[in-house]
């Protein structure tokens, strides 16, 4: 048993390494995502003109950031299964276990999303001003958001990549699934923005962790069935 787990761990590490190397070689994809984030933030800045913050524009600031992050993550993660060509998939099919693949993809996407979310937040705060009072808590909600988005979207992109018009399907399938998570995140980050007592966001934090746990276990159990086809 321990031996199998060790093999799984090795597979995961190997696959993450492979994804990182691939990303490093094709830097245009990552640069494209960076530019996507940057231009979206700038468009938001221009169209809202929110440079000066009054007290009541906090919710808009917060919701806008999460919407940008949502679209960024859908775009970034959608390609995680579609970019793989057929030959490479067949090769993986013969050498590694499906659990290894899904876990590796989840970890890799989480890393990618963490980086993107952090850059997005810094740039957004720089351009649109930063009303956040409790920054560590806000960063924690960003962290949870990145993990949550990447776990559920990885599975959805695996499902969507099997279908014909996968990019539309990706949006249709993912938005309803992500909404509960998004609502929790917006509430939690709003609490952090207003500098409320940290105990106030404990409910949201636990619920988010629970949702993440559910999503990861469900994708772990279900992915082998998807992989076979």
């Amino acid at each position: 048993m321990r031996k199998i787990n060790a093999v799984l761990l090795k597979e995961i590490l190997y696959l993450i390494q492979k994804d990182l190397v691939l990303e490093w070689r094709q830097k245009y994809a990552f640069n494209g995502m960076l530019l996507y984030v940057g231009s979206t933030v700038f468009v938001c800045y221009l169209s809202f003109g929110l440079r000066q913050f009054s007290d009541d524009s906090g919710p808009i600031w917060n919701a806008l950031l999460w919407i940008i992050l949502l679209f960024t993550s859908v775009n970034a993660i959608a390609k995680s299964f579609m970019q793989e060509n057929r030959g490479r998939l067949l090769y993986f099919y013969s050498i590694v276990s499906p659990q290894g693949i899904i876990l590796a993809k989840i970890v890799y996407n989480t890393l990618l999303m963490l980086l993107l979310a952090f850059i997005c937040f810094v740039f957004y705060a720089f351009v649109l001003g930063n009303p956040v009072q409790d920054i560590p808590m806000f960063l924690l909600s960003l962290l949870l958001g990145a993990i949550g988005f990447s776990t559920s979207l990885t599975m959805i992109s695996a499902i969507a990549s099997k279908a014909a018009n996968s990019s539309t399907l990706m949006a249709i399938l993912s938005f309803p699934v992500i909404v509960p998570m998004l609502l929790m995140l917006i509430k939690m980050s709003k609490n952090a923005m207003d500098g409320l007592d940290r105990g106030a966001s404990l409910d949201e934090l636990l619920t988010l962790l629970a949702i993440n746990m559910i999503v990861i276990t469900v994708s772990y159990i279900l992915f082998p069935y998807l992989w076979r086809s």
Partner: peptide
């Protein structure tokens, strides 16, 4: 199955 699992917390 995936959607139902995501629906429960909702």
């Amino acid at each position: 199955i995936f959607a139902f699992a995501a629906l429960i917390p909702l």
